[in-house]
Write a protein that binds this DNA or RNA. Structure first.
Length: 555
RNA sequence: GCCUCGGUAACUCAGUCUGGAUAGAGUGUCAGCCUUCUAAGCUGAAAGUCGCAGGUUCGAAUCCUGUCCGGGGCACCA
């Protein structure tokens, strides 16, 4: 359709086709037509006002392929045959691979959420996981092979802090609650202790040294507490529907990478200071100098990340590697990628998927002080809300209630976390953030269930579609459906799931308008509407799937 | 100080990449709609100096410059 318009304008104006394509736009209002060509650009060439040009063009272009062409001020508006359009869209949307971008066939590693193992996961991790999972799903949709991996930050001073508090107050107790929460309580406890008595800071440092010298008692406690935390994480991942293909542990790799640095030194990529420490000069990249090996020869954090990048390359032979990590580490990744580039790595294939913090009305979340929105508690709370809603409308057996409330609550949380542009900080107001009405996950699920409900009630009839008069909301729905591929393209380009989230909502909203204005069963356009509903279900299910959200046939 | 990301309705956010017609949603407020496919819904109303000031352009929320406010970063921490 668009090609036709381009050709006609080309014939009439001699503008080159690519330029015309760029100029053509979709008018803001339905009554202004389906496509518009703004004529401002021609006013110099023809030495006439754009308004007159639009009128002239209208006379010149007389194509039977359009319903009508109108000049509206400086715009030339094209009205295309709606019946043909809707038929075309239906055909397209019902193809199996609608929206897919094929033959990419790349291997992609996605790393998330890489938690510290001294406290349970919080809302920030949920945002991380929602984004990580969605990016993975989108990559898979583009026909890539995706490996989800996780790097556990299971050593270091923060771990020792929880350990100190446990030694002091734990009395060798075993967890009497979800085990990662049990460990996290000691982390909070430590920070209370340190406020009163600064020597605890030193004690933690000493414990870290003991740990590094492989002191048996320390290692055993560390193993025990880490296991508790990791067990807890496993349960949270499961509840949030996250699975990893591989887990890495910082404790196993933190000393590695030394050889890479020494080789780099030999090749002159890195430099040595007088005190013996090795650093990289990134002044050219405006990133300053970065130490890679301490003067005593030990590795720093970035050293292991250099090693891990190489290890991942060896193990997965990836074409692309995504790091889903908060925006406070943007500098770290800039430095990391620059170093890897110097080492001959194809750094273009590495990408930090940066996202903003989740803030509370009172400000930043602080695990240290315990004022965080805990991941498990939140999931449970929202689940309760969903159950209450369900119980108020319908009687269900326990299993079905569990299954539905589970999907609804996860949809609510994931949609809430994904609908906001990943790079932006977002606000979580516990009192009002997660309701089930309006721009929410449950609203979208509801529209899907309604669509299903229609299809359940139809009797099978002849499939031939005869379109009588089209209702504006039928056209609107069809047009919205047809946008799916470009949304996918944009999402993949920006690696930002928010585009799909917003599209899903708009699609659901458009469907609900259609639902109210266009009864399906026994209507004049019944067969057409059935096909529209089918397409809607298909496209919405795909969209939600890309957000890691499961649909419900009934709600 | 330097780097970076934000600032759009009372609140939470789209729209900025790729400039275009009357700047859109949701929440909240107010007013309607359930003997008809699920009211977690729909319709309507009120609500906006698009932080501010310049510039580019026929045209700027969108591009450029400056500036103010807020977040984050600039470790031989992780």
């Amino acid at each position: 359709m668009k090609e036709l318009i381009i050709n006609e304008i080309h014939k009439a104006t001699k503008l080159n086709k690519k330029e015309i394509e760029k100029l053509i736009e979709i008018p803001p209002l339905e009554k202004m037509g389906d496509y518009a060509f703004p004529c401002f650009i021609l006013s110099k060439q023809f030495k006439k006002s754009p308004k007159l040009i639009a009128e002239d063009l209208k006379k010149k272009i007389k194509s039977k392929d359009f319903e009508k062409i109108e000049s509206d001020g400086p715009y030339l508006n094209f009205f295309i045959n709606k019946k043909k359009l809707v038929e075309k869209i239906l055909k397209k949307t019902q193809k199996k691979d609608f929206g897919k971008i094929k033959n990419k066939n790349k291997k992609i590693v996605v790393e998330f959420p890489s938690p510290n193992t001294n406290k349970p996961l919080h809302l920030g991790h949920l945002r991380n996981m929602a984004i990580g999972e969605s990016i993975s799903k989108i990559s898979e949709f583009i026909d890539n092979k995706v490996y989800r991996i996780n790097l556990n930050n299971d050593r270091g001073i923060h771990i020792c802090k929880s350990m100190i508090a446990y030694k002091e107050f734990g009395k060798n107790k075993k967890p009497n609650k979800k085990s990662d929460h049990f460990v996290g309580d000691f982390y909070v406890k430590f920070n209370e202790l340190v406020k009163k008595d600064k020597t605890y800071e030193t004690k933690a440092q000493e414990l870290l040294q003991k740990w590094e010298s492989r002191d048996k008692e320390t290692i055993n406690l560390w193993k025990k507490m880490n296991m508790w935390t990791l067990d807890g994480f496993k349960e949270t991942y499961k509840n949030f529907n996250i699975k990893h293909d591989k887990e890495y542990f910082e404790s196993k790799i933190y000393k590695k990478g030394k050889k890479i640095i020494l080789d780099g030194l030999k090749k002159g990529i890195f430099e040595k200071k007088e005190d013996g420490s090795i650093f990289v000069n990134l002044e050219k990249e405006k990133l300053g100098e970065k130490i890679l090996l301490r003067k005593d020869g030990t590795a720093v954090y970035i050293t292991q990340d250099i090693y891990l990048a190489k290890l991942k390359q060896k193990e997965f032979k990836f074409d692309k590697s995504f790091y889903v990590v908060g925006n406070e580490q943007e500098y770290h990744f800039k430095v990391l990628f620059s170093i890897l580039k110097k080492l001959g790595f194809n750094a273009k294939n590495l990408k930090h998927i940066s996202y903003g913090m989740v803030e509370l009305p009172e400000g930043k979340m602080k695990s240290r002080e315990g004022n965080v929105v805990d991941a498990d508690n939140l999931i449970e709370e929202i689940n309760k809300m969903a159950k209450k809603e369900l119980n108020s409308r319908i009687k269900l057996n326990k299993k079905e209630l569990e299954s539905r409330s589970n999907k609804i609550s996860l949809a609510a949380i994931k949609y809430f976390l994904l609908k906001i542009d990943a790079k932006k900080n977002m606000l979580f107001n516990p009192k009002e953030s997660l309701n089930f009405e309006g721009d929410t996950g449950p609203y979208i699920l509801y529209s899907y269930a309604r669509a299903n409900s229609i299809l359940k009630k139809i009797k099978i009839k002849n499939k031939q579609i005869k379109i009588k008069n089209l209702h504006p909301n039928e056209i609107k729905l069809a047009k919205k459906l047809s946008l799916f591929p470009e949304i996918i393209l944009r999402t993949y380009k920006d690696l930002n799931p928010a585009h799909i989230a917003n599209y899903s909502y708009q699609l659901a909203q458009t469907f609900n308008e259609f639902y109210h204005s266009c009864p399906v069963i026994n209507s004049e356009n019944e067969n057409l509407r059935i096909e529209l509903v089918k397409s809607f279900k298909k496209v919405l299910k795909n969209s939600l799937n890309l957000l890691g959200i499961e649909t419900l046939e009934e709600m």
